[in-house]
Computed example of a mutant assay.
Amino acid sequence: MSKHRPHLYLAGGWEDDSIPLDQGARHHLVTVLRLRDGDSVTYTDGRGTVGLGTFAGDAVTRGNEVALERPRPMLTMAVAPPKATERSRMVVEKLAEMGVDRLQWLDTVHVEGRVPKIPKRDAWRSNALEQSQGAWLLDVASPVSLDDLAQDAVLWVATPGGEQPQPVSGPLVVAVGPEGGFAEHEIPLNAQRIGLGDRILRVETAVVVSAALALYHLGRSATRSSGLEAVLGAPS
């Protein structure tokens, strides 16, 4: 049985032949994963570069690296924060794991939750990036209204009784409202109202379902953006 090879998020700006590890990363690799000097790891800067290197105690020695093109079309999930912190955590983690490009928090009439604090958010998205062996760190933006969302993208709004979504060829924004839904006056006239089935879903469930639908209709559902096949020379 082959040994698990960790995938690490190491913030960019690499200049030397080795990348220093902070104390938390070293502790996890040595104490939890039982890595030894010379064991192989994969790593990413969260901006599309992935590499295959070796663990060297307090650093990762760089090896073969590949710079990837970002998957297109771009997908932004616009979400009203759920009331409980753990539910917001699920939103961040699942979108990061699925390879969504951007999470745009929404400020709506019926919103109940608060945007998670930055240290928690950053830990959630970086851990999810490592777990999913991704190459692109989820971008997270401060709350805006539906009217302030990107005007150059197709806008889907998840609503009860909405239509079946159709394939999209350009950038897409998918909006998921709070438990009480969007107020009617909040929904822009140019939005396509999409349905997610007959049941009323929690915010975090609706986010995962609508993100999966969006990736499928963008033609990205079968795309692997990790690039690990390239640096390893075979599927990981």
Rank of each mutant, 00 (worst) to 15 (best):
129 L>A: 12
174 V>H: 03
110 H>P: 04
140 V>C: 13
114 R>V: 08
129 L>P: 14
121 R>D: 01
150 A>T: 10
157 V>Q: 07
122 D>A: 06
175 A>H: 00
162 G>E: 06
85 T>L: 15
168 V>P: 03
104 Q>M: 09
94 K>H: 15
76 T>C: 09
158 A>Y: 04
56 A>R: 03
170 G>K: 00
118 I>A: 15
146 L>N: 00
139 D>Q: 15
87 R>L: 10
180 G>H: 09
96 A>T: 15
181 G>M: 07
54 T>K: 10
73 P>I: 06
122 D>G: 01
145 S>L: 08
107 D>K: 13
89 R>V: 11
191 A>T: 13
111 V>T: 12
80 A>Y: 00
163 E>L: 13
110 H>C: 06
176 V>W: 00
105 W>C: 11
185 H>W: 14
111 V>E: 00
152 D>A: 11
117 K>G: 12
103 L>E: 11
113 G>I: 13
150 A>D: 15
157 V>L: 08
125 R>Y: 03
136 W>P: 08
92 V>Q: 11
86 E>I: 06
92 V>P: 04
137 L>K: 01
168 V>S: 04
195 G>A: 06
105 W>V: 13
78 A>P: 03
110 H>W: 14
174 V>Q: 05
76 T>Y: 02
87 R>H: 07
135 A>Y: 00
164 Q>A: 13
114 R>G: 11
169 S>L: 11
105 W>S: 08
81 P>V: 14
54 T>V: 03
76 T>S: 07
91 V>P: 03
171 P>M: 06
101 D>A: 14
182 F>H: 06
90 M>Q: 15
131 Q>M: 10
85 T>M: 12
135 A>N: 01
101 D>R: 03
170 G>I: 00
170 G>P: 00
54 T>M: 03
99 G>K: 01
79 V>S: 04
94 K>Y: 09
81 P>Y: 05
144 V>R: 05
127 N>F: 05
193 R>N: 06
122 D>Q: 10
167 P>T: 12
173 V>W: 01
173 V>Y: 03
127 N>K: 09
90 M>P: 02
113 G>H: 12
130 E>V: 07
184 E>N: 13
192 Q>M: 08
186 E>K: 12
120 K>S: 06
77 M>R: 04
140 V>I: 15
73 P>R: 03
123 A>V: 09
105 W>K: 08
182 F>K: 09
187 I>H: 02
126 S>C: 12
115 V>P: 00
170 G>Q: 02
81 P>S: 14
121 R>V: 03
184 E>F: 07
80 A>F: 00
69 E>C: 05
97 E>P: 00
131 Q>H: 11
109 V>F: 11
135 A>I: 00
116 P>S: 14
124 W>S: 09
116 P>F: 15
117 K>T: 09
122 D>H: 06
79 V>A: 10
101 D>F: 02
145 S>V: 08
165 P>E: 00
